[in-house]
Nucleic acid binder design. Sequence first.
RNA 1: UGGGCUAUCGCCAAACGGUAAGGCACUGGACUCUGACUCCAGCAUCUCCAGGUUCGAAUCCUGGUAGCCCAGCCA
Length: 553
Amino acid sequence: MEEAVVSKNFIEQIIEKDLAEGHYDTVRTRFPPEPNGYLHIGHAKSIILNYGLAKKYNGQFNMRFDDTNPTKEKTEFVDSIIEDIKWLGADWEDRLFFASNYFEQMYEAAVKLIKKGKAYVCDLTADEMREYRGTLTEPGKESPYRNRSIEENLQLFEDMKNDKLKDGEKVLRAKIDMASPNINMRDPIIYRVAHMTHHNTGDKWCIYPMYDFAHPIEDAIEGITHSICTLEFEDHRPLYDWVVTELEYENPPKQIEFAKLYLTNVITGKRYIKKLVEEGIVDGWDDPRLVSIAALRRRGFTPESIRKFVELCGISKANSSVDYAMLEYCIREDLKLTKPRMMAILDPIKLIIDNYPEGEVEYLDVTNNLENEELGIRKVPFCRELYIEREDFMEEPPKKYFRLFPGNEVRLMHAYFVKCESFVKDSDGNITEVHCTYDKEAKCGSGFVERKVKGTIHWVPAPYAIKSEVRLYENIVDEEAGVYNEDGSINVNPNSLKILKDCYVEPSFNGAKAYDSYQFVRNGFFCIDAKDSTPDNLVFNRIVSLKSSFKIK
RNA sequence: UGGGCUAUCGCCAAACGGUAAGGCACUGGACUCUGACUCCAGCAUCUCCAGGUUCGAAUCCUGGUAGCCCAGCCA
């Protein structure tokens, strides 16, 4: 067996070089979300990347909540994040950390900087601070409080800590360079006063460290070697390095940036998803129209399919937007061989087999997945009256239409050949019944080879079928209009929720469990809503419409 | 002449000076108990542009162009 040659991505190259040159003797990565929302497909890229690297190089993968800003964080989110990452299969073993558990060490680190003359307490207001910071093209100017004595700074910082000050009254700043072309280096704030109840530390602290100060410390404490983050932090790297250098950590971690995952025609971006949830445009964080991990799970995506997807997308520093079709490919690819396929009719029309004895029923052995016999068989009742898909019959078929039309014979999947003899219309001209005769000899699996048919259609036994209400979701984004407007608002597709009433499914659905009920409908799939798998509440994947249209040339 | 980063097929993405991998999508054709799947075939004489160095450049140099990020007491 030969494995395809997979080239190493740029991060792997950096890691291997570091290992070879002895900068590190192991690899330790982490996934450090802020618990301020649910995870989505974009986070999956980071999780799988970090976890994958740790595994590949026999290192360790840490899970860490970067909870340094209590205003946005909730335990609801930490719970959901843990659930989602576990589901994705990333294993942090016993290394689940909270940045908030390092507050004491961060405080000590700040004191150390002050003692080194590398940090000072500043009284400038937020507005003044902005003014002093300068602009993108002009340098900033130094704060009048920049040269306070170490003793005074120590005292004031302690006052900040000991609840002697109001929010925003004073901050602690790193003393770097107000003229730096990199704005992040213009004496960035590293600690602020905020009287907030923290989801983990409660009211113990009234000062909180800023990301740029906290993150490198968190990484260093945990012995992270490669701190992988997204592109927008590139400008922060000099500050990251400044912090670990001034704090004199041995073997300091190294920050590496990669491009975020964007998908065409869907909404990524936590703040937008949050908005859709909060405004009630979608039903919640796991609404099937979203690409949150919870939503994808509910729709029937498997962890394998998402891992495969991330792997296929690759890692680079180029901003890019991956075609949604790639995600769909990955789930099809996984489901294809691993899940049973059952029959269901979305838009039914009755098919009556005139020469099949009335009242008789036989239970056919149906293979769950013709491409994977290990998935076994099930019994499906077959009788005189069936439902077939409305689009599988045409009164006047176009050329190259292989399905049912007067005089034509097709195969009923897993059952018999059936020939259309006549049909019935109602007063409005709608077809209500299709009448056929079946050929008992041409039973599937009987080895019948006398005749061949060009078409095969799926069906469901009318008296035994379970009638269900089906929700068919369309993309939340208006594909024509694009995702975002110029003002940053989202183009929501007004038809993103469609209800189809008469759906009929095989009786086998009765015992169907959340994840083992993937179906092909014509050429697509649909799946049961994993959140509530009762047959009355089927959620059809958008994948249903995928590849399902048959073009007549 | 603020700084940082990025530009390779419709979409991702390799190639690390030796003559443009692969996947998705698409298009033919074969096969078929799902017009799916599978299988075969096709799909960048060319790498944002313009010069230059070299026997040889997507890769090096020079100069442009385009896009993304940065002026939160968010992360």
